[in-house]
Design a binder for these strands. Structure first.
Length: 293
DNA sequence: TATACGTGGAC
DNA sequence: TGTCCAAGTAT
């Protein structure tokens, strides 16, 4: 990666972002730390297009952490809709409650305080601190990892888990100035989301194509450890999803409905128990369940 | 470190 | 058409 000088690399990405950034509700002047935080929870493993409508409805109904904290977890799960991974709705509710209790209802600005909240790991803490508060953090999501892996390391795709070397590269590239670092973080993410995509990257539209090591090496194919896909048909996850979909759409569901949705008894009972244990479902009668009140 | 955890669009 | 993938976290 040497066709562009270091400063030029940053300028190329920042200039590209200036021209091509999407206008998203959690960016721009109307965004608040809370709206940014909600977006980050929803965007975990979930495409922007599906988050957009749910995010708008969520903020309309719960404009502050206190507003969400004041309602039941079941309402949060129902509002979460078909976003997937509904435990995120539970964790967002729990995080809102913790913010009310520990931070006077204001989303904390410090990385450590954010990291201590339910549902917030390294990525989300860094993202909120960076995007909502303009701080300097390494924001390593799947997009940034892919961009840096290709541009710097010359491989097609990053390893299954973040490596030390990877984090070192990201740290080295992070601009010193906090405001610039925050823009760099969102710009590299956007570049990965729009141009340096997983399957068919648009290298013709890439502002750093001339400096890309992977491109310079002739696009060598991924040769790391196998990237195992997630099984779906017949899994507990599918079973849980079916059951919870029923509960979302009604005040409560009876055993007959659940049996119709998932005939296999042993797996059905296991998933029912697990959903209750997770706090996603409450048993309201011997053979009846609902979202938690 | 490996695995569980939802959902739906794209090719 | 089945596989791959999408702003990860918790255990």
């Amino acid at each position: 990666m040497d066709a562009l000088a270091p400063g030029t690399l940053h300028d190329a990405v920042l200039d590209w972002y200036d021209d091509h950034a999407r206008e998203l509700p959690w960016r721009g002047l109307s965004a608040t730390p809370w709206s940014v935080m909600v977006s980050e929870f929803m965007l975990q493993q979930t495409p922007v297009a599906r988050v957009l409508p749910v995010h708008a409805a969520w903020l309309e109904r719960w404009p502050t952490p206190a507003a969400l904290s004041g309602e039941s977890t079941g309402e949060a799960v129902r509002m979460w809709g078909r976003l997937g991974y509904p435990r995120r709705a539970l964790r967002l509710h729990a995080a809102a409650t913790a913010i009310v209790e520990r931070h006077d209802g204001e989303v904390p600005a410090s990385y450590d305080d954010l990291l201590a909240l339910p549902g917030i790991g390294d990525y989300t803490a860094a993202a909120i601190a960076s995007f909502a508060f303009g701080q300097r953090h390494v924001v390593l999501d799947t997009n940034v990892r892919r961009v840096l892996t290709r541009a710097v390391t010359g491989r097609e795709l990053p390893a299954p888990a973040v490596t030390r070397a990877e984090r070192d590269v990201a740290t080295t590239l992070l601009p010193d100035d906090p405001a610039t670092a925050a823009t760099w973080a969102v710009a590299t993410m956007e570049l990965g989301a729009l141009v340096c995509t997983a399957r068919q990257p648009s290298c013709d539209a890439c502002p750093i194509a001339a400096a890309c090591t992977w491109r310079g090496a002739g696009f060598p194919a991924y040769d790391g450890p196998p990237r195992r896909g997630q099984a779906w048909a017949g899994t507990d996850r599918q079973c849980r999803g079916r059951i919870l979909a029923l509960a979302r759409e009604a005040d409560s569901v009876g055993r007959a409905q659940v049996e119709a949705a998932w005939p296999e008894r042993e797996q059905r009972e296991r998933c029912l128990d697990a959903l209750v244990a997770d706090g996603l479902l409450t048993r309201v009668a011997a053979d009846r369940w609902s979202l938690p009140g």
